[in-house]
Structure formats: C-alpha cells, structure tokens
Amino acid sequence: MKRVMVHEEWCLGCHLCEYNCAFSNSGLSDMVKALKGKPITPRVHIEESGKIHYAVSCRHCEEPLCIRGCISGALTKDENGVVTINHEKCVGCLSCMLLCPYGCLTTDEGGTVLKCELCIRRGGVPACVEGCPNRAIVFEEVQA
C-alpha cells in the first residue's frame, strides 16, 4: 500500500503541507478564497521537537485502533487499506482520537473529527506531498 512518509531531516517546518491539505479538502478552487482569514483545518500537522520538524498524519494502520473504538461505525478501512471517515455516521464521541497512538486525528471548529484519507477523492498524489518544497513528505509503497 502507498503511504505518506516523512523524512524529518529534510522538513523545514514551513507548514505548507498543512495549507495544501486544508485547501485540498476545502472543496474550493481558489486557495485565497478557501483559506484567507479563516481557521485552517488540515488533516496533517507539523510537530516540532527542538530543531527537528516533522509532519504527522494518519498512518492507515494494519489493525487501526481508531476503527475498533468507533462506536458508530463511521471509521472504516477500504479495500486499498485507506482508513476513511463517514461524517454522516460520526457522533463526535472522540473515542478514535483517544485511541490513536500517533495523535493523527483532529477536529474542526465544529467538533467534527478529521483525518487524512490520502486525498482519495482528489486522486493521484496527496496535496501535502505535492506542496512540500523540500520533498520531505513522499508518497511511496510501504510493506506492512
């Protein structure tokens, strides 16, 4: 399965992955209209530890704890191994957030759970990967 991988030694901590992610998931075709003056809600976020920066997003685990703990069945894993969320089914209990050992789930300003779905609706390469100026984030085949 292809997954988003991070080379933290190359990450500049510029946060462009976050902006590209938020724009890609906004449903709008103009980045300025989608993001200017609004709180962004990316599915990837930059963590900093001293001088090291790295992007954190869903790892699409083999046996995802978030799915096991989802009381409404909103989280599922498709035939390609991508963990997705059905926002219609999500009841906002946040059990998935508590169970994720990597801290990869987040919420928007309304409390709706958000997570990386590898830009499957967009097709091709995820927006965070395309927007990384230093190629610190890559989309590559990984053996489980």
Rank of each mutant, 00 (worst) to 15 (best):
T106Y: 06
H60A: 04
G110D: 15
L99I: 06
C21V: 02
M31R: 13
C17S: 01
Y54P: 09
D30T: 01
V113R: 01
I52F: 06
A22Q: 08
F139K: 06
G111N: 02
G27N: 05
S57V: 09
E117Y: 06
V4H: 02
K38M: 10
H87F: 05
P101D: 10
A34G: 03
G103Y: 07
H87E: 15
T107Q: 15
N86I: 08
K51C: 03
P42M: 03
V6H: 05
V113P: 04
S26G: 04
A74P: 14
I85P: 07
V138N: 15
F23W: 02
G103Q: 04
C93K: 05
L98C: 06
C61F: 09
I67W: 08
N134L: 03
E48S: 13
G69Y: 12
V4Q: 02
E48K: 15
N25S: 09
G110S: 11
L118Y: 07
W10C: 00
G123Y: 00
E8R: 14
S72C: 08
C104N: 11
G13F: 01
R121K: 15
C58T: 04
K77F: 03
L94Q: 14
R121L: 12
Y54K: 12
T76N: 11
E88C: 02
K36G: 00
P42H: 08
G37A: 00
L16V: 07
C70Y: 12
T106E: 08
S26P: 01
V91E: 11
G81L: 05
E63S: 11
G37C: 02
P39R: 13
T41P: 02
H7C: 04
E88Y: 06
K77A: 01
R121G: 15
P64D: 01
E63F: 07
G124T: 07
T112L: 08
C119W: 07
C61Y: 10
D30Q: 11
K38H: 14
A22K: 07
N86T: 11
E62S: 11
C96M: 10
E140C: 08
N86A: 10
V91S: 10
V32I: 13
S95K: 10
E130C: 04
L105Q: 10
L75M: 12
I46S: 12
C70P: 10
E79Q: 13
C93L: 11
V113S: 01
S72L: 07
T84A: 05
A136R: 00
N134C: 09
V4F: 02
A136K: 00
C93N: 08
F23A: 00
M31T: 09
P39V: 07
L28G: 02
G81E: 04
I46W: 08
E18S: 05
C11V: 00
K36R: 09
C17K: 03
G103D: 05
C104V: 14
